[in-house]
Design a protein around this nucleic acid. Structure first.
Length: 387
DNA sequence: AGGCCGTACTG
DNA sequence: CAGTACG
DNA sequence: GCCT
């Protein structure tokens, strides 16, 4: 399918609440459907661009500053991210004039925002994309271990680099058999290529083995499994001689004052959290929450995402996305939902917490977005981007 | 050398 | 603010 | 560990 053929977009992001991650998802989608896309930078040649995608909330002045150009001099369409979502969702390049900047900003301000896009008409996404089909699992699973260990060590740089490498490998349309195929690619330096070569030849990494023999690393890796325990605390605990999760649990019972509320919950319920959840149970939990949601907003959108949506038989947590205009909905649902037992953190648009419907406590995440962002949020949350 | 995904909550 | 989590 |  290449309905984006001939479309050449530049995405202005990291401003006005429009994140680089969202931009990158748009880029991937457009390229998948035969278009060209790039994140806007000063190297972008605007003469080759057919559509500039800008955050809905951007102002004319800000955009002129970013582009360093008068808008009236531009030859391309200026559209917002919604144009991009709809183009992808409807699998048809949308008429740019329905989207922002087909009018002046002052007109746009007067206009009711919902006229940008008729939410009711948004079709349900056809989730045929296999973001999980990873032709290079043989490489990514080893590099992932490396990444996790560096994360535990607090080496942010390396762990980010490895994340990038893993992402690139996952997106590759072919299986890597030879490091030559990767030469020159961004993020693949000499050392990485050597490591990949090693994996291709031996299946594992020597470096990984030496890490395995490092007691501190082993301990920290295990302790950071607990929700609320990062590498700082893990190191602190290690120095204190707390080497296992069960000794951490005992310690926390005696010294609860040394931990935050969130950490105490994580420590207490860790054993329950580490057991996987069946699809049936995910559905049951979700159903309870769903009826609560609809009690407040009959028009709300509701989808189970996460590993459930990726089709896994056993899920790590329950991941829900709600679309509504009610900014208090999430608070109300959390407050009144009978199965929710703990709140790890809560804001108007994100709940991280715990619920219980059968014998075990389960991790539940709920995201709450505006209806017109709903399907995009669903996509973003299942796409499993930096993981 | 010094940054590195972006966002948001907790304390 | 740092630490942690979430994708 | 990679990039500028």
């Amino acid at each position: 399918m290449d309905f984006c053929k001939g479309v050449n977009i530049a995405i202005v992001c990291k401003v006005f609440g429009f994140t680089g991650a969202s931009a990158e998802v748009i880029k991937i989608k457009f390229e998948k459907y035969g278009g060209r896309a790039e994140i806007y930078s000063d190297k972008t040649n605007l003469n080759q661009i057919s559509h500039i995608i800008v955050p809905s909330k951007i102002t004319e002045n800000a955009l002129e500053k970013i582009l360093n150009k008068k808008l009236s001099d531009l030859k391309c369409y200026i559209v917002n991210e919604e144009w991009a979502y709809n183009t992808i969702i409807k699998k048809q390049v949308q008429n740019p004039s329905f989207y922002i900047w087909s009018e002046t900003p002052s007109q746009a301000q007067k206009r009711k925002p919902q006229t940008i896009c008729q939410v009711e008409k948004l079709p349900k996404l056809n989730l045929n994309f296999q973001s999980t089909q990873n032709l290079n699992y043989h490489l990514t699973k080893e590099i992932e271990k490396l990444k996790n260990l560096y994360e535990v060590l607090g080496d942010k740089g390396r762990s980010i680099t490895y994340s990038n490498i893993i992402r690139s490998l996952r997106l590759l349309p072919f299986k890597v058999e030879n490091t030559k195929q990767l030469e020159g690619m961004e993020n693949f330096g000499k050392k990485t290529l050597n490591k990949i070569k090693e994996i291709l030849e031996k299946g594992t990494l020597e470096r990984l083995k030496s890490f395995r023999q490092n007691e501190r690393l082993q301990v920290m890796e295990s302790l950071t499994q607990v929700h609320g325990v990062g590498n700082d605390l893990a190191y602190f605990l290690y120095k204190k001689g707390i080497l296992t999760i069960s000794s951490l649990q005992n310690y926390a019972i005696i010294n609860p004052g040394e931990f935050t509320k969130t950490q105490l919950i994580g420590i207490e319920l860790h054993n329950e959290f580490s057991s996987k959840i069946s699809r049936d149970e995910v559905e049951n939990i979700s159903q309870t929450i769903k009826s609560q949601v609809f009690a407040y907003d009959k028009e709300a959108f509701f989808e189970i995402c996460g590993s459930y949506r990726r089709g896994r038989e056993l899920c790590g947590d329950v991941d829900i996305v709600i679309g509504t205009n009610d900014t208090d909905l999430l608070y109300k649902v959390v407050e009144n939902c009978s199965i929710i037992t703990h709140v790890l953190s809560l804001s108007g648009h994100k709940f991280i917490g715990v619920g219980k419907i059968q014998d075990l406590h389960r991790r539940i995440d709920i995201y709450c977005v505006k209806p017109n962002e709903f399907w995009f949020a669903v996509q973003l949350i299942i796409i499993d981007f930096y993981d």
